[in-house]
């Protein structure tokens, strides 16, 4: 199956590949990694997936690569593809009640809904180790808070729009906070430094406060 792609030059050594959906981004990203692992991709410095694009930076001949990539056959990403990690969560977030109310469920049901949702890291950004996780059904997608918090504690599990995320460290943030985890999202001394890498599947399991 072929997916629709547009290859836009970005400077002298990069291509920005534009795709139709987050699913197509994940599929192309997985294909790029497969080809890189197989040694059939030209040398690149960075492969950076985002919401509707994949940036390929550090190409010697971006024009030649653009000609090739748009003709690739890219299979859709299988649900079970990629490593899976489990992240234990306490449902103690200050926005839990508001999120439950917007979802029209009891706050006690939120942990189960989240645990039943298969998430995947679509891309990283904002801060080292901050992953944008897709998978949230459309009916559970909420806007950001009208006023961002000046300090969101490290380990906060948060929702905004189509994404879920966990703050790797304390920072300002406008996402809805539903819980927290002790998992270390970012540790430069660890290999890999980021717990959430693009393509990683994530399962949030409730602990403690899920009573």
């Amino acid at each position: 199956m072929s997916i629709g792609m547009r290859a836009l030059p970005m400077g002298e050594h990069a291509l920005l590949i534009e795709l139709g959906s987050a699913q197509d981004v994940e599929a192309l990203h997985a294909e790029l990694l497969r080809r890189r692992d197989a040694g059939t991709l030209p040398a690149v410095r960075d492969i950076v997936p985002a919401a509707r694009t994949v940036l390929i930076d550090g190409l010697d001949r971006p024009r030649d690569f653009a000609e090739q990539v748009i003709h690739w056959t890219v299979p859709p990403l299988a649900a079970e593809e990629g490593p899976e990690i489990t992240v234990p969560v306490r449902y103690d977030g200050p926005d839990l009640a508001e999120v439950a109310s917007r979802w029209q469920v009891d706050p006690a049901d939120v942990p189960r809904i989240v645990a039943d949702t298969p998430f995947r890291v679509a891309f990283c950004g904002f801060a080292p180790g901050f992953g944008y996780l897709t998978g949230l059904p459309a009916r559970f997608q909420l806007p950001r808070r009208a006023t961002p918090r000046t300090a969101v504690p490290a380990g906060s599990l948060a929702l905004a729009g189509e994404f879920a995320g966990v703050y790797p460290r304390s920072s300002p943030g406008g996402w809805q906070l539903i819980g927290s985890t002790d998992a270390v999202l970012w540790d430069p001394a660890r290999e890999p430094a980021a717990l959430f890498e693009p393509g990683t599947r994530v399962r949030f399991t409730p602990v403690g406060a899920a009573r």
Binding site: F126, A193, P198
Partner: peptide
């Protein structure tokens, strides 16, 4: 530290 952009670095 090039090569870590996909991790947000």
């Amino acid at each position: 530290r090039p090569g870590h952009a996909h991790l947000g670095v």
